[in-house]
């Protein structure tokens, strides 16, 4: 892995001037994606913040080929693009030395929920693609509605904190492990706060000849409700409190990539964000306790996974 100084000198595939919010975590991902690799990449995106803010006709932020068709089908769309590439290459209509890679982007709504079937199909069929889910934990583009990625207890416009219901009362779906169940060679969870972890995982995903899945925690200023200069800090705290572990399944070896030196209480992450403000009312202490229980429970699960899929002895 190059250092940041070297990466900054590499050519861009994604240009500034897009209309994503100040403090949005998403643009970090495409910027790094193009910088970490020498592959030529074709990108497909699901409908969502990323797509609408970067392709407002007649402008585009994409210096490289980009396609969007609908919301629930980025994985199917990129499947078609990749299938055409394989076909034309086999027929000799694309030079044999021209190696292209294919990346699909979807938000958590477009991936965990409405796009899950299309994602599963693409992973099962084994296309040479990297699917990147930018997970900001709700339908942010339509105005912060709950998705199956929304954290337990979070207030959204369709799971509002009310007088009797303290926000979303369901646990987040564990999408990366669902992707893993397709027995693909690479699946990982990472966060924009950890550029090195993110860059390494993007590179690994691209290097595989086959499907790879990467779920990236990406902070959302209006959805999470924190000051726009705090994006990286808030995301880092999700990792430091153990709410968002960084892990990967790499060719059958399961690794937790980062262990906080001192695992902070999850409340330290919750209190930074307006979407959890209601949980600090005395009557909702039990919700915070439940979130902490879920975090601890998940780390136990990760430990089991590491035991089950250890690195081969050196």
């Amino acid at each position: 892995m190059a250092n940041l100084k070297e990466l900054s000198k590499r050519p861009d595939g994604f240009s500034p001037g897009h209309r994503l919010c100040a403090g949005c975590g998403i643009p970090i991902i495409p910027k790094l994606l193009y910088k970490v690799t020498d592959y030529d990449i074709v990108v497909a995106s699901a409908t969502g913040c990323f797509e609408v803010a970067t392709t407002i006709y007649p402008y585009t932020s994409w210096l490289k080929p980009f396609v969007h068709s609908a919301f629930e089908n980025a994985a199917a769309t990129i499947s078609g693009v990749e299938a055409m590439y394989q076909s034309l290459k086999k027929q000799g209509k694309i030079p044999a030395n021209r190696k292209l890679k294919f990346v699909a982007f979807g938000g958590d709504g477009g991936t965990y929920d409405i796009g899950l079937q299309s994602l599963s199909g693409a992973l099962e069929r084994g296309h040479d693609i990297v699917y990147i889910c930018y997970d900001n934990g709700a339908y942010m583009n339509t105005g912060i509605q709950r998705s199956s990625a929304t954290p337990y207890g979070a207030s959204t416009t369709t799971s509002p904190a009310g007088k009797v219901i303290p926000g979303k009362m369901q646990r987040r779906k564990d999408l990366t492990n669902i992707a893993l169940a397709h027995h693909i060679e690479y699946a990982a969870q990472t966060a924009v706060s950890h550029w090195n972890d993110l860059a390494t995982k993007l590179q690994k995903g691209l290097d595989i000849d086959g499907p790879a899945f990467i779920c990236v925690m990406s902070p959302c200023v209006p959805g999470w409700m924190y000051p726009s200069d705090q994006s990286i800090e808030v995301t880092r705290m999700a990792v430091e409190t153990g709410y968002w572990p960084l892990f990967e399944m790499d060719h059958g070896v399961f690794r937790v990539n980062y262990r906080p030196k001192q695992k902070l209480p999850v409340a330290d992450w919750l209190k930074l964000q307006g979407r959890f403000r209601h949980l600090f009312r005395p009557e909702y202490t039990y919700v915070i306790e439940e979130i902490q229980r879920q975090v601890d429970d998940y780390w136990e699960y990760l430990a089991h996974m590491e035991q089950a899929f250890p690195a081969p002895p050196k």
Partner: peptide
């Protein structure tokens, strides 16, 4: 895995 994906993949392939 569905007709929705069939047409989506056709769109991706034709756009390619």
């Amino acid at each position: 895995e569905s007709e929705h994906s069939a047409m989506s993949a056709c769109i991706g392939a034709a756009a390619a």
